[in-house]
Nucleic acid binder design. Sequence first.
DNA 1: CTCATTTGACCTCA
DNA 2: TGAGGTCAAATGAG
Length: 350
Amino acid sequence: MEKRKSMMGNWEQKILKSELTQGKELAQKLMNHLHHSSSSQEGEFLISKLLSSYEKALSVLTRDVGSEGEIKQIQVLDSPCSFGNSSSPLSEISDQDCKNKNVFKKRKPMPKRTEEVKVCSGTGQDGSLDDGYSWRKYGQKDILGAKYPRGYYRCTHRNTQGCLATKQVQKSDADPTIFMVTYTGLHTCHLVAQLNGKQNVSLKQEAGTPRQTPEKSFSFGLRVKTENLDTREEGKKIFPSFSFPPTPIESENNVVEDHVFAAIANDFLGGSYAQTFGSPATFESDYFAAVSPCHFGLVRNDVQTSDSDLTHEILSASTSVANSPIGDFGFSLEDLDFYPFENNPESTFP
DNA sequence: CTCATTTGACCTCA
DNA sequence: TGAGGTCAAATGAG
């Protein structure tokens, strides 16, 4: 744990540096861009990236103050029986068998994260934002003060694998194309195949029902760009998946952006993340170098929560369809520390 | 037939 | 006590 804490400081420094550097580069690019006049879309993209960089940098600075307490809070929440343990979800399921009277006994604190996802027009529907997991809607609720109802989803594998991950999807009042997605709990369902699927379109057969194919957004030749590489958020942010309509728009800028992101990711992760995938080189090239046909910029604003939430992260992908997964591909660096009982073998670090 | 979604009711918590 | 979260029966889709 001490090791991780010291690493955190180092990380954040790198993050800060990277974000500011990126911001500078983006500003430079933007300036060139404006001079040479191309599409306004691209300009917006650059601006959003620019803003993202500065916001990230600021958030790192802001978070720096209370990071210690934050970690402690996370540790408290990490009750061994809550998630990650293969036996605990099953025990919870057995609780459910005891009819709903027992279900509300006591809610377990779950790690929570919020993301803001902007979708391409006509591509995503509420809750169907493809984040690589298969979700099942179990409820919908009108939220006070919110224009749109909130949808409640849980992992389809809840019953079969005891996966306790849930998410809440709510359309933003201000911008209906933005979905606020709050992820709660960790996926304990099989993820290896999903990850493989994200790296490589040729997928292995995953243990699970055919209809529960989390790779569906990757199965028809979409180019997937996963720009959400700022795992600096206590390492809890794991590369999201974004799916796009197969509109082959590629710009030089995008390619450059990808390189920047890849560099940052590598910087942040020190290669250890990619290690999880078996081949860092493959991971980077396949996962980061993909270019989005829809230019999308991440505008992430990290928001600290006042309650027991571990982290709330807001992400905006200006033209993406899918939101990012819960950061709990199970192998987040932080997850490993915070949730040592994660039974996902892929989550274990050497 | 199986599974997902809808929706009203119920439960917990602040 | 009200808002938010969850359950489960009813319904629909494939």
